[in-house]
């Protein structure tokens, strides 16, 4: 027991000395993911579209595989472009379908998610039959590989994240109006469809940023959990956004730290579990509707 503790202590010390380049890269990359997913996820969660992120995440898999099969190249820009196209198409298809009255949004999301993932898994088995597949790293996209992230990837992630954050800053008032009351926003002449379309595209970009660290299966968690946590902490949209960003970044750091301690643990799942931990804490103690808080105030009233 003591031995285990001291080994873990040594590992922790190594971590905080930031001795390894791959740790620094992983920290930078996952921070970017936590930040943008928290910010953009806020609007998805408030709009009631949390699962759209899940559909978009799963829909990146066919894009990645198809890009690899078509070009035969395994360079990152090619694969990520494929991911962006397929996740964007599926997310926009969901919004278009559910605008009519025949298909409910939840059903549309369920259909898009499962169908695109089915296509993705089929393509993946074709990819794995090809000789170049073994070191192609395509299966890294399934669960993410934060430890394998290169400095070039970090730069790319940082630039994309900066673009997403800038766009959110510029559009945030229109986003808030469209989310709160789309009919009113439309009557004011605000281009609600364009705003919602941009939100979907922004979300797809977040997903593309996220899959490299967290993987296609779990990336939606980084869109949904920090934003839901922020909702329990703050009572303005901007407040929720800031809390979600902080929770996202803290989950990223926590996830990298835990996966570094337990060698062999994937970073994606540990990030998600850290985010879930923050969510449970906020669920119990959050100032906006935390369970224990509510009981306390109810007790005070009666």
């Amino acid at each position: 027991m003591l031995v285990v503790c001291s080994v873990l202590g040594d590992r922790a010390a190594e971590f905080f000395e930031l001795r390894y380049e791959f740790v620094i890269n992983a920290l930078l990359a996952t921070s970017a993911v936590g930040l943008v997913c928290g910010v953009v996820g806020t609007f998805l969660v408030l709009r009631g579209l949390s699962l759209l992120g899940d559909a978009a995440g799963h829909a990146t898999l066919p894009g990645v595989c198809a890009a690899f099969l078509i070009t035969g190249a395994k360079t990152l820009p090619v694969l990520l472009t494929g991911a962006l196209v397929s996740s964007g198409v599926s997310a926009l298809a969901v919004t278009a379908f559910s605008r009519g009255r025949r298909v409910r949004p939840d059903a549309a999301i369920g259909i898009a998610l499962t169908v695109s993932f089915a296509i993705g898994v089929c393509l993946l088995s074709i990819v794995q039959r090809s000789p170049a597949a073994t070191q192609s790293g395509i299966s890294d996209f399934l669960f993410g590989n934060a430890a394998g992230i290169t400095r070039r990837q970090v730069v790319f992630l940082g630039a994309t994240s900066a673009a997403i954050l800038t766009a959110t800053l510029v559009f945030h008032r229109a986003l808030v109006l469209s989310v709160f009351d789309p009919n009113h926003a439309r009557a004011l002449g605000i281009p609600v469809r364009i705003v919602e379309g941009s939100l979907v595209v922004g979300m797809s970009l977040c997903v593309v940023v996220g899959i490299q660290c967290v993987g296609v299966v779990l990336v939606a968690a980084m869109l949904i959990i920090p934003a839901s946590t922020g909702r329990l902490i703050a009572n303005t949209v901007v407040g929720v956004m800031l809390s979600a960003a902080v929770v996202g970044v803290l989950s990223a750091w926590g996830g990298v730290f835990v996966s570094f301690l337990g060698e062999g643990l994937s970073t994606g799942p540990t990030m998600v579990l850290c985010a879930a931990f923050f969510f449970v804490v906020a669920l119990l103690f959050g100032p906006q509707g935390g369970l224990l808080r509510r009981r306390a105030t109810e007790g005070a009233i009666t």
Partner: peptide, 20 residues
């Protein structure tokens, strides 16, 4: 109105001034 979006009354009123 989607009241799950957090907003104070004054935030709602401020939301009425933006156009186009």
């Amino acid at each position: 109105v989607h009241s799950r979006v957090p907003a104070r009354a004054i935030d709602v009123v401020r939301g009425g001034v933006d156009r186009h």
